Computed example of a mutant assay.
Amino acid sequence: TVPVELVLPARDVRAPVVAVTTGPEGALVVPEPPSTVGWWSPSALPGGAAGTTVLAGHVDSATGGLGALAVLRHVGEGEEVVLTGADGRSVGYRVSARRQYAKAELPPEVFAPGGPPRLVLITCGGAFDRRTRHYADNVVVFAEPT
């Protein structure tokens, strides 16, 4: 089902989800405002039999404040993640790992189209470069279906 809402119950986060694609340079387009999360529409649908479902959002913005995914740097193994679909069905996941990668070193398997079903949540992290107005890293949370 197409995801329309993300919930991280232990973090008191509830955020709308919208479909996003990649831009002309191949980078994932992240929605504004930071309170909204983007589902990368070429990725798997939540609740499917295979493939990675990819969601991404801003950690923060100068005008919008903290993003819905700002909590990812604190999320631990075993925490629950719930995606609600446009049809009202919910798909549950449990966090299995949290990693931080330099943006240029984000592993391609994060976007793997095949393999067992899983959820990947991505936001910015690491040092903020005031000159370029970008974070150096990505925080990536991996979750398995419950």
Rank of each mutant, 00 (worst) to 15 (best):
P31I: 06
P31V: 01
P31Y: 02
E32C: 12
P33E: 07
P33V: 08
V37D: 03
V37H: 06
G38M: 08
G38Q: 10
W39T: 07
W40D: 00
W40Q: 06
S41A: 15
S41D: 08
S41V: 15
P42N: 02
S43A: 11
A44S: 15
L45C: 07
G47W: 04
G47L: 06
G47M: 12
G48I: 10
A49Q: 13
A49N: 08
A49K: 04
A50R: 10
G51W: 00
G51Y: 11
G51P: 07
G51M: 04
T53L: 10
T53S: 13
T53F: 11
L55E: 05
A56F: 01
G57P: 09
H58F: 04
H58T: 04
H58I: 05
H58K: 09
H58R: 02
V59A: 12
V59E: 09
S61Y: 04
S61T: 14
A62Y: 14
A62P: 14
A62Q: 11
T63E: 14
G64E: 05
G64Y: 06
L66N: 12
L66W: 09
L66D: 15
G67C: 13
L69I: 09
L69W: 09
L69V: 10
L69N: 10
L69H: 01
V71Q: 00
V71N: 00
V71P: 14
L72E: 07
L72T: 00
L72G: 02
V75I: 09
V75N: 08
G76Y: 08
G76F: 13
E77W: 10
E77G: 09
G78Q: 12
G78S: 12
G78M: 03
G78F: 07
G78W: 08
E79T: 03
E80L: 15
E80S: 14
V82T: 13
V82F: 08
L83G: 06
L83K: 04
L83F: 05
T84N: 12
T84M: 11
G85R: 03
G85A: 08
A86L: 14
A86V: 11
A86D: 10
G88L: 01
G88V: 05
R89P: 02
S90E: 15
S90W: 01
G92A: 06
G92Q: 07
Y93H: 09
R94N: 00
V95L: 08
V95H: 07
S96N: 10
A97W: 03
A97M: 04
A97I: 02
R98D: 07
R99Y: 01
Q100W: 00
Q100M: 15
Q100R: 15
Y101L: 06
Y101A: 01
Y101D: 03
Y101C: 02
A102W: 06
K103M: 02
K103Q: 11
A104W: 01
A104R: 15
A104E: 14
L106I: 11
L106D: 04
L106Q: 05
L106E: 00
L106Y: 05
P108F: 10
P108T: 09
P108V: 11
E109W: 13
E109T: 06
V110C: 07
V110R: 10
V110L: 02
V110Y: 05
F111L: 12
A112Y: 01
P113H: 09
P113T: 14
G114N: 12
G115Y: 07
G115P: 04
G115N: 03
G115V: 02
P117K: 04
L119P: 00
L119G: 04
V120C: 03
V120A: 11
V120L: 05
V120N: 06
L121H: 03
I122W: 01
I122A: 05
I122T: 01
